[in-house]
Computed example of a mutant assay.
Amino acid sequence: MSKIGIFFGTDTGSTRLVAKKIYSLLGEELADKPKNINRASPAELLQYDALILGTPSYGVGDLPGLAVGCQEANWAEFVPYLDGVDLSGKRVALFGLGHQERYASRFASSLIQLYRVFYGYGADIIGRWSTDGYQFEHSDSIIDDQFVGLVIDQRGQPHLTEERIKTWLAQITPQLLPVTAA
């Protein structure tokens, strides 16, 4: 069975923490250890048919990277290396972090940028997430009244993180695993 690849961008370490929780809950039988996107090559990412990708939120709905204030390379520096790839047949679930109180007018809006990149290259994006339980003014990361992936507010609602991850993983894991012949 091929494993699920988990890749994340981070600046303060919060996205890494969530990626590690996801890995811990999935277990080493289903997933490989999470890898910071600034230490990954496109070939490493492309070896997986199923991916869980995480991003912090930086800028005003920007893809996180050096240009918007990250201290290290992030998704903005990695994405150009994917130029022209065909991700058809790859199943991708996304998660993003945001702070709904402090950034209520652009809550978790970097997630949509990651969605657009991978959707644009043909990936099958799964794992939409309800906006219920959050209080914010606006998020670009909403399509058809749902977030395009799991949204975690590690600053304002850390007490909900574990349960949100468990619920989301129960939803997406069957879709990420390869179909086996009966």
Rank of each mutant, 00 (worst) to 15 (best):
H138Q: 12
L53M: 11
P178F: 03
R164A: 12
R155I: 13
D62V: 06
Q157C: 02
V148A: 08
A40T: 15
Q100K: 10
A93F: 13
Q157F: 00
D32C: 00
M1H: 11
P56K: 01
G156K: 10
L45K: 02
L169P: 02
D49Y: 01
E163K: 15
A50R: 03
E72C: 00
R155F: 05
V79S: 06
Q175H: 15
R91W: 03
L111M: 03
L82C: 08
Y119C: 02
C70N: 11
S24N: 14
P56Y: 03
I165C: 08
R16K: 15
G69E: 09
D83K: 14
T55V: 06
E137H: 08
P56W: 01
K90Y: 00
L53R: 00
V151N: 02
Y119K: 08
Y121D: 02
R102C: 00
A31M: 12
L45N: 05
L63P: 02
S2P: 14
K90F: 01
F78N: 09
G61K: 02
G98F: 00
F8G: 05
L46W: 12
G54Q: 06
Q146M: 14
L111I: 05
D124H: 13
A181D: 15
Q146I: 07
R128K: 13
L51W: 05
D140K: 09
Q157N: 14
V179N: 11
V179H: 14
V179I: 12
A93W: 05
P80F: 10
G69I: 13
R16G: 05
P42T: 11
W129T: 11
A76H: 06
F7C: 12
W75A: 04
M1N: 12
P42S: 08
N36C: 11
S139D: 09
V92H: 04
G127V: 08
R155D: 15
H159T: 13
I172G: 04
N36I: 11
G59T: 07
L176P: 03
I126E: 11
A104P: 01
G122L: 02
Q175S: 10
E44K: 01
G84P: 09
V68F: 01
Y115Q: 00
T131V: 10
G133N: 08
S130F: 10
V148S: 04
A31E: 14
I52R: 03
E29L: 10
G69D: 08
P64C: 05
K166V: 11
A73V: 03
